[in-house]
Design a protein around this nucleic acid. Structure first.
Lengths: 253, 253
DNA sequence: GAGTTTTTTTGACATAACTCAATAAAACAA
DNA sequence: TTGTTTTATTGAGTTATGTCAAAAAAACTC
């Protein structure tokens, strides 16, 4: 895989003192397929280095885009984590997802031309920003890039369907077990520690996302701990019995 | 908008005696943006007419593709309706969606290379099939088509997120009201009657989709009828108070 | 580090929705 | 049509999860 002018950016920022946790390696990042294409595209499009792809830290509580902002960039979480949510008229936000290290953010904005939700850092984090509007301005053939985006979106759709499918029918225990499994699996995929990790989000964020009361999430986690499935220390979780948690998520318990 | 060699196909089959209900007009069909591109592409790619796009009737109960079949085509529902579901090991299918007249089917298969669910006709229906593999074989530049697909997928993602957002927190009444609203809205968008229409799916299909027991769906529908919001006759619904149903779906009741 | 604010845990109680079951109505087949 | 099968309705009783509230623990702030 050819690496072009972005190589410097892609390896910079190794140790950002503000970032709460370790960074994901580029080769483990969900945006890497697109980055690689961009490396190539940038090299020959004459766009100045760093315009298409930019690294930057994001402090806890900061937003990188808000619902209805015009679409301009794709983001990848390099360190830390984000929640995405839809603010509602009655001030009860609806959490629609969590984005961990190595995961993309903002792809849904491409279709409508504006972001369909707000993205807020759950802890001190850092992101890569891909300014796609600039790329399109450059007028270069972007077929390969489009194919990459199609695949990303397709995966997103498949994931959403699975989420709906499972969510709607599962008990609170299955949902929480599934949530833990999902976090663990996603961290593992990005080469991060996946048995013991930090849950940056609050109990009520989790509950909001899973369609449960925060109190219920708390109760279920406590129960899991009593059953010896997990160990809890504040926001830090250790999954003691991975198989059991997965089984429970699948409804096989 | 230029119309090419497919024009004959696109206007054929006006009256299919097997189809249960009226056909959607091409200009109201969700696939039309892509069809238009194909009209153009087919004309100059030398692919024989009818290879990329094919009309055909589908009888009630028939499937047009099954979970894990290799992806080959996008479909559009021209008449009738379909349900999509994921068969599960314990034979309890999970309904993931309903596809009405004018709506696309199968786009999620593009990313992984195989369909992530089974699609089955709820009534005697007809579909347009777009054989995308053929198009890719033809080796022609497909940038425009890709852009169209990106937009379709993006909309799908946005829709899924909304669905998750709403579904997880709503009461049974809100969900059923939302379901009715959604059917009505989608039919309207395709230029079909949207105040009185047929619900091809069973109560338990609806329940399965909404995460409710079929009995609950039945009870809620009965209640809505008693409140004068709708009139029910078997599978045929008349929405008497559109505003009230929408309000209830939004949780404003 | 002390004080303030936010988050989490835990308990008691209320209730929406599920399950099981029986009847009624439609749909289908001969 | 008649009989058979599937689907829908309705009732009774159970339970999982929500709500409200209070105490405990963490997380910030100065």
């Amino acid at each position: 895989m050819k690496k072009g002018s972005l190589a410097t950016i892609r390896t910079a920022c190794k140790a950002d003192k503000q970032a709460a946790s370790a960074e994901v390696e580029c080769q483990n990042c969900g945006l890497d397929p697109i980055c690689s294409i961009l490396d190539y595209a940038e090299e020959r499009s004459g766009v100045p280095e760093g315009v298409l792809l930019r690294r930057r830290p994001v402090s806890r509580g900061e937003t990188i885009f808000r619902k209805d902002d015009p679409f301009h960039s794709l983001f990848a979480v390099k360190a830390g984590s984000f929640k995405t949510y839809i603010p509602r008229f009655d001030h009860t936000d609806q959490v629609v997802g969590f984005h961990l290290v190595g995961e993309m953010l903002g792809s849904e904005g491409m279709a409508n031309g504006s972001y369909p939700y707000t993205a807020r850092a759950l802890e001190n984090s850092s992101v890569c920003e891909l300014r796609l509007e600039k790329l399109q301005d450059s007028g270069k053939p972007i077929e390969e890039l489009q194919q990459g985006i199609i695949e990303l979106l397709g995966k997103e759709v498949a994931f959403s369907h699975e989420l709906i499918a499972s969510m709607v029918h599962q008990t609170s225990e299955q949902r929480v077990a599934g949530f833990l499994s999902s976090l663990s699996h996603r961290l593992h995929r990005r080469g991060m520690p996946s048995q013991e990790f930090n849950m940056g989000m609050s109990r009520s964020d989790i509950g909001n996302f899973l369609g449960l009361a925060g109190e219920t999430v708390s109760r279920v986690l406590t129960k899991f701990q009593k059953q010896g499935l997990i160990r809890l220390k504040h926001k830090r979780v250790t999954i003691l019995d991975v198989a059991a948690v997965q089984q429970m998520a699948a409804g096989l318990d």
